[in-house]
């Protein structure tokens, strides 16, 4: 990075060139000025250079109750005896002081549960962060009273998945959640009613990719199923039907069209619906 400037060298009238923080004469090598502001590009690169002027510290995260701003007292092997025990006591007090109220304690518990769920379901990070935000707003509007934290954690993940168009079925969430289905439904009902989630009906095609990979179906089956799902949606055949049932039926129909072996039982198992649902929806799609 070097630029030539208009000014001439005071010694030999040669051309000046600024390189980084110095201005040097091209001809005689005289350093005309130094330690000026370096206007070169930053040494580190930030993803949000344009919008965020913050340049220090670890990134903030909504998925921790203190936004990841806390400090931890580390361990060292060099400390011995009395000093070591003192540091251990300080560490314990420090950890206790991180959580100041019952509310925060619940939040920490809820957030750990959300982290665990999103980790187990291998959901992307933004889903995790938004679930935590949703959980927090549920706490803010006093929805947790009389309902259980685990249920709200699971419901927050379920709701965020729906709004982010990466829907999971209730069954899939319950399988890994420590809440049971009733608790999840109660919590989700509260979230939906009070917080105005704006979740529309689930598009069956959101399920297709996952079901297809669970069933080890080739891509052409999935593609055909996707077309069928779109057609069903446009013609209104899918309206009022269980979206996972529709997804299963689409896959079943597509597999039959393409000539891939797939039983109704397999398709219904992976979608968590009964074979009857698949059969009925299939017949409906045929028309």
């Amino acid at each position: 990075m070097s630029t030539t400037t208009r000014q001439a060298c005071p010694e030999c009238d040669g051309r000046l060139r600024s390189m980084g923080a110095e201005t040097v004469c091209d001809e005689c090598g005289l350093v005309v000025s130094e330690d000026e502001l370096d206007r070169g590009p930053e040494w580190r690169s930030f993803a949000d250079d344009e919008t965020n002027p913050e340049r220090c510290g670890a990134p903030l995260t909504r998925s921790r109750h203190d936004r990841g701003l806390s400090t931890e007292i580390g361990r060292s092997t060099r400390l011995k005896g009395r000093k070591r025990r003192q540091i251990a006591r300080m560490r314990r007090q420090h950890n206790r002081a991180r959580i100041s109220s019952k509310r925060e304690r619940n939040q920490v518990y809820g957030f750990t549960e959300i982290r665990r769920l999103t980790g187990q379901l291998e959901l992307p990070e933004h889903v995790r962060d938004r679930s935590c935000v949703l959980f927090e707003s549920a706490q803010d509007s006093d929805l947790l009273q009389g309902r259980c934290i685990e249920g709200f954690a699971a419901a927050a993940v379920y709701a965020v998945c729906r709004t982010a168009s990466v829907s999971r079925t209730l069954g899939e969430i319950v399988a890994v959640a420590s809440a049971d289905e009733d608790e999840l439904k109660v919590a989700y009902g509260a979230l939906n009613r009070e917080l105005d989630l704006r979740t529309g009906p689930i598009d069956p095609s959101e399920y297709l990719a996952r079901f297809a990979s669970n069933l080890d179906l080739p891509t052409d089956v999935e593609r055909t199923a996707r077309r069928l799902a779109r057609e069903a949606h446009e013609s209104g055949h899918a309206a009022g039907r269980n979206p996972s049932g529709v997804a299963a039926a689409c896959l079943y129909t597509a597999a039959r069209d393409v000539g891939h072996e797939l039983t109704q039982r397999e398709a219904s198992d992976v979608a968590g619906v009964s074979t009857v649902t698949v059969r009925n929806t299939y017949k409906h799609l045929q028309r």
Partner: peptide, 17 residues
């Protein structure tokens, strides 16, 4: 989980991350 009187299950105690 035990303190909150939850059913202890393998699938709910492991945090894979």
């Amino acid at each position: 989980a035990n303190m909150r009187n939850r059913q202890l299950a393998v699938s709910t105690v492991v945090r894979s991350d």
